[in-house]
Design a protein around this nucleic acid. Structure first.
Length: 230
DNA sequence: CGTTCGATGCACT
DNA sequence: GTGCATCGAACGT
């Protein structure tokens, strides 16, 4: 079933954790494409220096200030679309960035979309790489600026509970610093399925290091550093 | 393995 | 004019 608005109307770190294993779906005339969410990042409030709301309300970040359960899509580096699910109440700007999916439906369609604009045939894309990374998954699903502001609880772009729990083996989820930002790296607000082949960031970002495990210290806590494998 | 670097468009100051 | 919540090709070790 499609996740209801109430799902998103909660503390953003809880929504981030609970989005892991859910199915992101995009239905278009060319078909339905979907994937299980395996990696997300939380961006929380004007006090979070990496959140787009850090400068206060602007035209671009307006959706963050709106109701929960809305898609916030923006163009990044002039060439990639990134998709977020807006969380928390009106006027509490926060969202969860969807960073990676395990492809489930419409894999051929994803391959064709990934091939678009490149000289290479659709065949060349490995399934695990189709939705690895926030810019890649939007291209595979056909998500663009047109989807900014769409209602995730009642549009052709939505997230559903497929009755799947990840990680499948009962291993705890991993938390670590967010990727690709220059400020706010002290907050371990990236959540992912450790070791999953579709997680972005390379091997170093795909470990379940002790300090990267869930605990509830994320509510109290302030981890100063994250160890790196050697 | 690792790191660097260019592509590319636009919101924001 | 500046700086990106990125990606992958091209290098160096």
């Amino acid at each position: 079933m499609t996740l209801p608005r109430d799902f998103y109307d909660r503390p953003t770190l809880d929504v981030a954790r609970d989005l892991i294993g859910k199915l992101l779906v995009h239905e278009t005339p060319s078909g339905r494409a979907s994937g299980l969410i395996v990696e997300v990042e939380a961006y929380i409030g004007e006090s979070d220096p990496a959140c787009h709301a850090a400068p206060g309300r602007t035209r671009r970040n307006a959706p963050l200030y709106g109701p929960p359960g809305i898609a916030y899509v923006y163009l990044n580096y002039g060439m990639h679309y990134l998709v977020n699910a807006v969380t928390e109440a009106v006027d509490a700007p926060a969202a969860v960035l969807i960073r990676a999916l395990e492809p489930r439906e419409g894999i051929g369609l994803m391959r064709r979309r990934r091939a678009r604009g490149t000289g290479k045939p659709a065949k060349e894309w490995q399934e695990h790489g189709l939705c690895r990374g926030p810019g890649n998954l939007t291209k595979s699903l056909g998500i663009s600026l047109d989807h900014n502001g769409l209602n995730l609880t009642g549009s052709r772009l939505f997230i559903e509970d497929a009755g799947i729990t990840l990680p499948a083996d009962g291993t705890p989820l991993a938390w670590g610093p967010r990727i690709g930002i220059s400020v706010g790296t002290e907050s371990p607000w990236r959540c992912f399925v450790p070791g999953h082949p579709c997680v972005s960031g390379g091997a170093r970002s795909n470990y379940a290091w002790p300090e990267r495990r869930d605990p509830d210290e994320r509510t109290t806590g302030t981890r100063s550093s994250v160890a790196r494998p050697s």
